[in-house]
Simulated assay, not measured.
Amino acid sequence: MDMPINSQDKETLTTLDKIERARQARRNKFYLRDEHITLSHGSGGKATHNLIEGIFAPAFSNPLLDRLDDAAVFTPAPDHESVRMAFTTDTYVVNPLFFPGGDIGRLAVHGTINDLAVAGAQPLYLSAGFVLEEGFPIAHLRRIVESMAAAAREASVAIVTGDTKVVQRGKADGVFINTAGVGVVRSKRTIGQDQLRPGDKILLSGPIGDHGIAIMLARDMLDLECEICSDSAPLHTLVADLLKVAGDGVHSMKDPTRGGVATALNEMAMTSEVAILLDESAIPVRPEVRGACEILGLDPLTIANEGKLLAIVAPEVADRALAAMHAHPQGKDAAIIGTVQATPASMVFLRTEIGGTRVLDMLVGDPLPRIC
């Protein structure tokens, strides 16, 4: 006799089926034809996806990895199913190491916290691994480590383990930092990029492009009489406030880092097999950032951010979610920037300020190497 399937089991089966279909769709869409690694493979855009789908995803495939979310969410043991944990890792190679609004140390802490936060987790503990180049100034290392420590204290997380390696001069460009983080998931509902539904609203916590343009200015690539600072910041308290108000209405969250908002939303649309329509006039961009992008021929939607949140929520909670963001210092300029639609699946469109509509694709190439 067949056993009845409850609603939770049905949701789990549906989710697993969507993950598998999305995985096959990605593998049908992305092809690794390159014979050598290029800087574009680290951009977070199409070349990165080709690399992941062509090399890493097939080799390491498992149910947690196959979701391709920013953090893996799991139960620590079969007899602890009431507790869910999130785990993530990242590596930071930004150039320059110190820039307006932050440095590689603060960036490493904030970025790891944010990957846990968008999984609905309260960050708890971080690791820190350093690859140091022979000849790197001790004063610079002390400044970076002290900055990391301050960022961790401010976010109420602890750096509890780490590692240090030294390589020959010219082999590491100063310092590279690898971090990992664990946290406890607050939400009982699955939050992920495969959870978007037609009708959902897309919320953005504030102006985009600040980090990428700040890095560009710090490299003296553009002579502008303006000060643009990186938006590097931890998002977990903003996420906590959002979840308190919107609860199960929060379907997906992502911090649009490498590849920017355009790449993040394309990943979501593809995995959930939906379409996304954005309203260009609703997307907040600082005038200084917009001006720099126009001069350089860049699209703010493909520029990296390090302290912004994309939240996809059910339409009935959208106004409450937006109000919760506005009440938080990091979300005071938040806006509803678009809507999820059923078709055409796996596509993102932008309704332009002049009334037209164009396809918004992932980042192609690598206009700003070494930004995080």
Rank of each mutant, 00 (worst) to 15 (best):
1 M>D: 14
9 D>W: 08
10 K>M: 10
13 L>D: 10
15 T>R: 14
17 D>K: 15
19 I>P: 01
30 F>N: 06
31 Y>F: 07
34 D>N: 11
40 S>N: 13
45 G>F: 07
47 A>M: 08
50 N>I: 02
52 I>E: 00
52 I>Y: 07
53 E>V: 04
57 A>E: 14
59 A>H: 13
62 N>I: 05
69 D>N: 15
76 P>Q: 11
78 P>W: 11
79 D>H: 13
81 E>C: 13
81 E>I: 06
82 S>N: 13
83 V>S: 13
84 R>A: 07
85 M>K: 04
85 M>N: 07
91 T>P: 00
94 V>M: 10
94 V>S: 10
95 N>I: 14
99 F>T: 05
104 I>H: 05
105 G>M: 09
114 N>D: 13
118 V>G: 03
120 G>I: 08
122 Q>C: 06
125 Y>L: 12
127 S>H: 10
127 S>V: 03
129 G>S: 13
131 V>H: 00
132 L>G: 07
134 E>I: 05
138 I>F: 08
139 A>W: 02
142 R>P: 02
143 R>H: 12
147 S>H: 04
148 M>F: 03
151 A>H: 06
155 A>C: 10
158 A>C: 06
159 I>N: 04
161 T>Y: 00
161 T>G: 11
164 T>H: 03
169 R>V: 02
169 R>I: 03
174 G>D: 04
176 F>E: 10
180 A>Q: 10
182 V>Y: 00
187 S>W: 00
190 T>W: 07
192 G>M: 11
193 Q>S: 05
193 Q>V: 13
195 Q>A: 13
198 P>D: 06
202 I>Y: 01
203 L>N: 01
204 L>S: 02
208 I>G: 01
209 G>T: 03
216 M>Q: 06
222 L>S: 05
224 L>G: 01
227 E>W: 03
230 S>G: 07
230 S>I: 06
237 T>K: 09
245 V>H: 03
247 G>E: 15
249 G>D: 04
250 V>M: 09
256 P>E: 00
258 R>F: 10
261 V>H: 02
265 L>D: 03
268 M>P: 03
269 A>D: 01
272 S>Q: 09
277 L>N: 08
278 L>C: 06
280 E>Y: 01
281 S>N: 13
284 P>C: 04
296 L>G: 12
297 G>F: 06
299 D>E: 05
299 D>I: 12
299 D>N: 15
304 A>D: 00
307 G>L: 08
307 G>P: 10
307 G>A: 11
311 A>E: 02
311 A>I: 07
311 A>L: 07
313 V>P: 05
324 A>G: 03
326 H>T: 09
329 P>G: 07
335 A>P: 02
336 I>E: 10
338 G>T: 12
339 T>C: 05
339 T>H: 13
341 Q>I: 07
343 T>R: 15
344 P>C: 10
344 P>T: 12
345 A>H: 07
348 V>R: 04
349 F>E: 11
355 G>R: 14
355 G>D: 11
358 R>V: 15
367 P>S: 09
369 P>E: 09
369 P>Y: 09
372 C>P: 01
372 C>E: 11
